[in-house]
Write a protein that binds this DNA or RNA. Structure first.
Lengths: 194, 194
DNA sequence: CCTACCGATCGGTAGG
DNA sequence: CCTACCGATCGGTAGG
């Protein structure tokens, strides 16, 4: 369907160039139609953005509910590392990742509120998964007895930092930072052996 | 001087709206002149950007060489925390911080290379200061014997994560994340007592 | 430092 | 789904 094609192209281009710097004529060209034909499917550019945002949320939910099943035979450290890797990879390699980056950092003004809301909702889903792993770790005395908020907040900050760094530095520097951050993070939350 | 006024306004607006979304007519209006008068001082919009970038570098250098003198009577932990706070504050509250955020995340294409180069140069200066503190900490057996690259890389990742989060989440959530990240980071690099 | 203007491009519309 | 067109705005120029 043409409408889906438009949405997919828009998702890609909004992520690559930002909302304001993506011209409807460029979207049309990539889709293979002329600009006015877009208006057969959407009432305005803002309308397209709203539907793209819905699509992103749908994909995020699918990702969290299906791909993020973590093997229960892994140790707590391995599980956490797995979440760490998966989240990093998704943010860096999926179209959705670039879209979030653009759109959470410098949102089109009129959408700032909705975007924040939806992003926090998605993050909340991930937080639940995280908490389970931390809970298990604390029970097994593998993880230090820190408040859940401290554990999740510091995890997110590392993830966010790497997310930022991945696009800016080269792959080599990114990998260095990822390993360093993981090492220090894990040493930080690890239960001190007695 | 009008030229300086233009540069200051441009620095501010490039940081707020990005390069492409800042119109010369808006800069002119804020300065209090008409758009064509800008061309008495600059040959093009790109020219303005180049000079703004130079100005930013100048300010960064001034910051690092003057404000970042850390009191030597502080403990290693206090010194590191001081650097952590100062860097965070500067990135969040100074015009230069917003400018870096815009411009390192989504640079105007033709400037991507220069920007990266200059940013890394600035970061390198900071790394030297950081290394001194880590070195002291390791000598005093306050900090774990990890490679310098691991210590600095993980420090930067936390800083970068907080930098990202500060503008996105409210001040409350930011403070929570800052304290949590610091706590886990410090536990991670701290020398394990025997 | 200004007025007056340029060609290009933007989001969006009319009408078929 | 198209051609043809709109008013607004962009970076930049001419000419004084």
């Amino acid at each position: 369907m043409t409408k889906d094609k438009i949405l997919n192209v828009a998702l890609d281009m909004f992520g690559q160039f930002g909302y304001e710097d993506t011209a409807l004529s460029d979207i049309a060209k990539t889709v293979g139609i002329k600009k006015p034909s877009i208006y057969n499917h959407f009432n305005s550019k803002e309308d397209i953005f709203r539907e793209v945002l819905d699509e992103v949320i749908r994909r995020e939910r699918a990702f969290f509910s299906e791909e993020l099943k973590i093997a229960s035979d892994l140790t707590c450290e391995e599980q956490l590392r797995e979440l760490f890797e998966q989240y990093n990879e998704r943010m860096a390699t999926s179209e959705v990742g670039l879209f979030w980056k653009r759109v959470t950092f410098f949102p089109p003004e009129c959408f700032a509120e909705v975007i924040k809301e939806k992003f926090k909702e998605v993050e909340g889903t991930f937080t639940e998964i995280l908490k389970d792993v931390f809970h298990k770790g604390k029970e097994e005395a593998v993880i230090r007895d820190l408040p859940f908020e401290t554990l999740t907040a510091s995890f997110y900050t590392v993830i966010d930092g790497l997310f930022l760094e991945r696009h800016f530095y080269g792959e080599d520097e990114y990998l260095l930072r990822k390993e360093a951050s993981w090492k220090v993070f894990w040493l930080g939350i690890q239960h001190p052996e007695i």
